[in-house]
Write a protein that binds this DNA or RNA. Structure first.
Lengths: 352, 352
DNA sequence: GTTAGCACAGAAGAAAGAAGAGTGCTAATG
DNA sequence: CATTAGCACTCTTCTTTCTTCTGTGCTAAC
């Protein structure tokens, strides 16, 4: 248990350290403290906080820096998000006000905006695709050997892929197959399309003498559409931590971040969190040691969910140094997710 | 004019320096020199070479490093490309042996392979699009408000874009317009599609009461298809020069490199070079000061053209530090461009 | 419980010295 | 006359030492 004054001191130290990135001394704390106490008193309290594992020293006679536990305590009990300044507000609104053609374009832009504003690495994933339904599957012949397979879903997203068919497949045959596939798939949600259903379609196709290769195309685009796409931006900002890390480490981090799957598991919906509280309202913070990879030791990950009504929930995230200014970043994320949700609702509204 | 021995010394210094990145002393040169001379003689010769501006010192009593002019002389007169080792050969062949669906996929992979092999930043542009002809333009309705415009060219590349049409446009109307556009465009080369032709199509469309908005879509995809796409990979490797440059400089470089247009002008076909010699056979090297941006002062750009028979010429390029091991890199590029050309010819062959 | 005062620890920076690599010059040599 | 051995000199780099400064912990007084 901490006394009120101890909490105040911890908070002051964290606020100062996340701004200056220098160990904070008792005198500095004294000056920033709203209560009037001497530096000696502050020193005594700091010793207590260190005893409890919330503060650390870089050497025996240095100022204090927060420990992981210190950050944790701060984040769980003391933080109050800072309201973002008007200039930032304007930039967000301005940058989201573009003629987007697809949901994913908006999500991608969201990651870009976030990383631009924060100078950290930003992530954005679109609303969950669980309930998204297929509105149509097309195969368009492009040339004698090439076709394009297109899958359209009711959230306005479009996935397409180009294929080279081995032997000259009959145009009518393709059309017949596509019609059959549409009969089976339109209106079905992406998550409900499983192997059983695909097998049934395959049987149908074979029964009617259609080319079963088409099923491969179908499977590919469905897989593409169903996989939660995570957009990343601002990888370059990982460099700001270059002093701590060496080049090989930064390169490994880049690779880690470019693997979509590694990330999704990192950021993706954590079922536990989901249950603990109706989380979508809180920005979650994971600190270095709480993250799955050793590479992320000195980093910290903020994730926030945004809710687009019946279109499901999406996630935005920020990866920055452990000593980032949390109150500002959380304030930004809380604000930003609402704007993003608004924009997406607005977008979906056009299809009504 | 340099004597044979001076050339030998210059070459030795450059070979050594591009390996170790340390100034080279007279004793080191002596040991590596095939002729037997004393270090004092080497020192005398080095003084001459410095006099001529081909060598430099980092301080009054250090070993020598090549000057830009020194590199230039080496590249123009002394270099002999090194044959690449079998392991590299195998990696190239292996990585190019994938089921690509489009020319651009191959080109993109080429950039990736090059940067992987060299640990530098690599660029690749596909064969020139000047002579590429339109084989078809499609508009596929996706949903009540969305359409996809597709442009197919006879090199097997496909460009597509999604649009949200403002008011519900009639399906038949679209088909009519598309048919008309195809009548005008199929068989035309991309470079021949100019404003005059587009204006004529617009007039036709209006005359027949078709929606002129479709022209916008058409223009967009044509612009997309006609612009020479340059693929970049290995930007992260710019970091290796981090010691010299500071973070802001690296960030600026990133931005520079991500601008397609800035790059194209950097790397794109230089008409002069084109005339000077039937260049396509030589790897061109541009050294720091010869490059258009101050940011690239300590870098050097190798460009090589590859020829895919009647399908035109493409370009691959490498951006690395000025002190890179040129003979190896040029050897690699010379080899790689042939493999790439082979692969592309192979690909085109499938459409015969 | 709080505070002033003071001795002490460690970092950071400046100054000074030592070692090493490499040069340029001179004088000797075939 | 080109080549070479020899040597003084220059500059970098690495240590070492000294100084300054920030900030702590402890003690004693309020």
């Amino acid at each position: 248990m901490l006394t009120e004054r101890q909490e105040l001191i911890l908070k002051t130290i964290i606020m100062d350290f996340t701004q200056t990135h220098e160990p904070v001394g008792s005198k500095t704390v004294m000056n920033q403290l709203p209560v009037k106490v001497s530096s000696a008193t502050v020193r005594n309290e700091m010793a207590v906080l260190e005893e409890k594992g919330l503060l650390e020293k870089t050497h025996s006679s240095s100022g204090r820096i927060p420990s992981t536990a210190g950050y944790r305590y701060y984040l769980d009990h003391l933080i109050n998000p800072v309201k973002i300044p008007a200039s930032v507000y304007n930039r967000i609104v301005y940058q989201l006000d573009q003629p987007f053609q697809q949901v994913n374009e908006i999500v991608q832009e969201a990651a870009k905006i976030l990383s631009d504003l924060t100078n950290y690495t930003a992530f954005a994933a679109g609303p969950e695709t669980h309930s998204v339904k297929v509105t149509g599957f097309r195969i368009v012949p492009l040339s004698s050997h090439q076709v394009m397979a297109i899958l359209v879903t009711d959230d306005g997203n479009v996935k397409n892929q180009i294929y080279t068919l081995p032997h000259h497949t009959n145009g009518e045959e393709i059309e017949k197959a596509v019609r059959l596939i549409n009969d089976q798939l339109v209106g079905k949600s992406l998550s409900s399309i499983n192997e059983v259903l695909l097998k049934r379609i395959a049987d149908h196709l074979i029964a009617r003498g259609s080319a079963p290769e088409i099923l491969d195309l179908l499977q590919d685009v469905i897989k593409d559409a169903a996989s939660e796409q995570m957009y990343v931006d601002g990888q370059i900002n990982l460099l700001s931590n270059y002093e701590n890390d060496d080049l090989t480490k930064i390169k490994s981090l880049y690779k880690l971040i470019d693997q979509n799957d590694a990330l999704s598991s990192l950021i993706g919906f954590n079922p536990e969190d989901e249950l603990k509280n109706d989380s979508s309202s809180k920005v979650q913070v994971k600190l270095g040691s709480e993250l799955p990879s050793d590479l992320l030791e000195n980093y910290s990950l903020l994730t926030a969910q945004y809710s687009v009504g019946k279109y499901g929930k999406g996630t935005i995230a920020l990866l920055g140094p452990t000593n980032m200014p949390y109150s500002q970043m959380i304030g930004l994320l809380e604000y930003f997710r609402n704007e993003l949700a608004k924009k997406l609702l607005d977008y979906y509204g056009r299809f009504k």
